[in-house]
């Protein structure tokens, strides 16, 4: 079987993989939004570019698992730098995030441009990680993305009780003797993982939207955390599939922006249509 209803088999598999990423990003993003860390992954997202370029330079290969492993290392390193800045300087959090984001993106661009300028074979395609491009993904790549996403969702399902309590009332959780800081780091690490697996589809610049917009759209429809996570996952899934479909049809269109616009459209509709969630407003 090479096609279904005229759609190439590979496109279907890729769409399924990216759909899984969209779902997981919505679920995990919801926890980030509930913990008031909506943009926790943004600096890490911009830093992934360094990892992608460095992984390519070190290994000379362009296999997705290699590049994404590099991206994950860079993402975690950037979060580590953020922690260090908070711990050792008096720079405020918002500025620290902007510093890590801007400087790491600059380093990523420097590496990418250097690779391009030297004409290293295979280096040209790395720019696709800026804005996302799913056309080049293989079925194996999609399988990897789906597997990581499934593992992330499973982890959240296991620790849902813990994550929700820490997000709602960290002081109470700490009074129970829970390691709130560890749980917080785990959450941020999960967001970083989602940012990394979201990279091929949404790109470093826009992947943050994948963990922010579906959750806030879902929040308009429900007052229960569990339902919100599920809905956010579905909205993420629909947006991801729409992005893949659109860029399959329109040749030069990057997937990232399309996914974001789809999610934004669902958010706008949710604002208009959802039964008045706001008290008093």
């Amino acid at each position: 079987m090479t096609s279904l209803a005229g759609i190439p088999y590979n496109t279907l598999v890729v769409a399924a993989g990216v759909a899984a990423v969209g779902f997981a990003a919505g679920v995990i993003g919801s926890l980030g939004v509930l913990r008031k860390r909506a943009l926790a992954g943004d600096a890490a997202a911009h830093a992934t570019l360094v990892g992608v370029a460095a992984a390519f330079l070190v290994t000379g290969r362009r296999d997705l698992p290699v590049l994404l492993l590099g991206a994950l290392v860079a993402a975690v390193a950037s979060l580590g730098v953020l922690v260090l800045i908070r711990r050792f300087t008096r720079t405020r959090d918002d500025a620290a995030t902007a510093i890590v984001l801007g400087v790491s993106f600059g380093l990523g661009i420097t590496l990418l441009s250097g690779i391009t300028a030297r004409g290293i074979p295979g280096g040209g395609g790395l720019e696709q990680f800026l804005l996302g491009h799913t056309a080049a993904l293989t079925a194996a790549d999609a399988g990897l993305l789906a597997a990581v996403s499934a593992a992330a969702v499973l982890l959240v399902w296991l620790g849902l009780k813990e994550a929700v309590l820490v997000a709602f009332d960290p002081d109470f959780a700490a009074a129970l003797g829970w390691p709130v800081t560890v749980i917080d780091y785990a959450l941020v690490a999960l967001v970083a993982v989602m940012v990394v697996v979201g990279l091929p589809a949404a790109g470093a610049v826009l992947v943050t939207a994948l963990v922010v917009i579906p959750p806030v759209a879902a929040r308009q429809w429900t007052d229960r955390a569990g339902t919100m996570l599920l809905l956010a996952g579905l909205i993420g899934l629909v947006s991801a599939v729409a992005g893949v479909a659109a860029s399959a049809v329109v040749p030069r269109l990057a997937t990232g922006p399309t996914i974001v616009l789809m999610a934004a459209a669902i958010f706008a509709l949710s604002l208009l249509l959802a039964p008045g969630r706001r008290r008093g407003a």
Binding site: V33, A38, L39, L206, A209, V212, P257, A264
Partner: peptide
């Protein structure tokens, strides 16, 4: 104020959406 989002979430929605629109 209208949708009850936290500042960073609200900014995240707006700037990614506008930037995506720009890229498209």
């Amino acid at each position: 104020s209208r949708a009850g989002l936290a500042e960073d979430a609200a900014a995240g929605v707006v700037f990614t959406t506008l930037f995506a629109a720009g890229v498209v």
